[in-house]
Design a protein around this nucleic acid. Structure first.
Length: 478
RNA sequence: GGCCUCAUGGUCAAGCGGUUAAGACGUCGCCCUCUCACGGCGAAAACAGGGGUUCGAGUCCCCUUGGGGCUACCA
């Protein structure tokens, strides 16, 4: 049988990393088995619906490289893929479940249900309406009395199943309550819709967060009552912000889009979250999507919560950046270079190439290069460097030589500057560092720069380099 | 509160009865080097606690502690 998995988010906000990882595992598992990955929108909670959230789900999955085979914007043989568009289907199956004894109509008012609240504040429905005779039910229905449809959970017995990650799970039915399947607005709750849809859409493997671990026996009861085959369950441990808080949209820092705008790239994010809760057999860390598809395996999925570590994500992102071609980095870094005051004034390709191995996320770009535009009076103590064997007196003699050397250059390229400066050092019997350190300080007025004297001169260009050398020579005379 | 569930360095994690308890990030040190970064080498750093089972337990069982989840006409 063909494997079919589904990612079923509710459009209540932005795409957060926890959901992203669930989608990823669904995708990896399906693709590994040559199966289909389906996107279904669970929008039965009208109150939490957020405008635009569906589009974010589409674009995030696409950016993340998780192309779904069927979905609302893609079509497929099992549509529609939006639950509110499937309303009639649920009601039909709910009625069928009532016939089969797995559910029943409930006409109780909210007030009455509220009055059932126990000392812990938990409401547990007392099956009051289960005792209604068919005639009474029909009478109420005909009279248009508002109703919900509740699941009929056995009062005794144990519901158990084998989870592919957590193993044997057993819950006593007495712990479960007769939850609402169809709400008074006629829409189904998640508890019902997911069962009906997963069956109708031929989902073979249900992959979702571990928060459903203990309610799964309720779903199995429905599968059984309908006479449907239960899917394989694969529950996933949560991703945490820290030891006690789950990573959630509420903190506003777990959105995929936020990471993109901070200068992380999608493949790195996806690669990183894959590692939260899963470890490939060979312990690989940096993997392409294709490699992840090949290596994915359920016995490598862990059961314990994983804390999201942005420091490691940064590192991985940096690895991706370093492995990227210069031209590609030049292109994707454009929006971030634009944020710098140097934008448009220097050779963008040179700057990009210099930056690529030195940053982990692209939002670091402006601060790394803005110094190019901040040249001015600086502390000449920087010329003193013990290890380089440099000091101010040396600078006074070296700088004019550097000036002459550079000004005589007809071609101002990395190689020509490099050869000229090293040639100067050799000729004057100086250490490379004595010339280069001195030149770099004079050119930038900084003790730390991304790149050495040669790179700095190249970026600044001949005219600006000479100006700055001149400025530095005067500064030293003061 | 009840029920489900989890527990190896700071973090991600390998391990699936016998190992000097991997690896990665981070931290620190050294090397390379014109600073920074890259790269290379190295170090510190863990089986939550207590009982069993066993010749032998991080690995199996129980309890304790701690964490997470469920307990909605939310998903």
């Amino acid at each position: 049988m063909k494997v079919r998995t589904r990612f079923a988010p509710s459009p209540t906000g932005f795409m957060h990393l926890g959901g992203m990882r669930t989608a990823l595992y669904c995708y990896l598992f399906a693709k590994q088995h040559g199966g289909d990955f389906i996107l279904r929108i669970e929008d039965t909670d009208q109150e939490r619906y957020v405008e635009g959230a569906v589009e974010v789900i589409y674009s995030s999955l696409k950016e993340g490289g998780m192309d779904y085979d069927e979905g609302p914007d893609k079509g497929g043989a099992y549509g529609p893929y939006v639950q509110t568009e499937r309303k009639d289907i649920y009601l039909k199956y709910a009625k069928e479940l009532v016939e089969k004894g797995g559910a029943y109509y409930c006409f109780c008012t909210k007030e009455r249900v509220e009055s059932l609240r126990d000392e812990n504040g938990n409401v547990r429905y007392d099956k009051h309406c289960l005792k209604l005779s068919p005639e009474e039910v029909k009478k109420n229905l005909d009279a248009g009395v508002p109703y919900v449809i509740r699941q009929n959970i056995p009062e005794k017995g144990v519901g158990s199943y084998e989870d592919a990650v957590y193993g044997h799970i057993a819950v006593d039915y007495s712990e479960l309550e007769d939850g609402v399947l169809i709400k008074s607005d006629g829409l189904p709750t998640y508890n019902f819709a997911n069962v009906v849809d997963d069956h109708l859409m031929g989902i073979t493997h249900v992959i979702r967060g571990a928060e459903y671990l203990s309610s799964t026996p309720k779903y199995n009861l429905m599968y059984d009552a309908f006479g449907w085959e239960r899917p394989v369950y694969i529950h996933l441990p949560p991703i945490m912000k820290d030891a006690t808080r789950k990573l959630s949209k509420r903190y506003g820092d777990a959105n995929f889009d936020d990471f993109i705008s901070k200068g992380y790239i999608a493949p790195a994010i996806v690669n990183y979250i894959a590692l939260l809760g899963w470890c490939p057999k060979d312990n690989s860390e940096k993997m392409t999507m294709q490699e992840m598809i090949e290596k994915f395996s359920l016995d490598g999925v862990s059961k314990s919560p994983a804390i999201f570590d942005e420091v490691k994500l940064r590192w991985l992102n940096g690895e991706y950046l370093k492995a990227m071609g210069d031209e590609e980095f030049y292109k994707i870094s454009e929006p971030f270079r634009k944020l710098s005051k140097t934008y448009g004034k220097y050779d963008g390709r040179l700057i990009a190439a210099l930056l690529k191995p030195r940053i982990e996320i692209m939002s670091e770009i402006p601060e790394k290069i803005d110094f190019l535009e901040e040249y001015g009076e600086y502390d000449t103590e920087m010329f003193c460097h013990k290890k380089m064997k440099t000091d101010k007196e040396l600078a006074k003699t070296v700088l004019p030589m550097v000036y002459d050397t550079l000004s005589s250059l007809s071609e101002f390229t990395h190689d020509s500057i490099h050869d000229a400066l090293l040639g100067l050092a050799a000729e004057k019997q100086l250490k490379n560092g004595q010339v280069l350190w001195t030149a770099r300080v004079a050119l930038t007025g900084k003790d730390v720069t991304p790149g050495g004297a040669v790179e700095m001169a190249e970026i600044l260009g001949k005219e600006r380099s000479l100006e700055r050398l001149e400025f530095s020579m005067k500064l030293l005379e003061k």
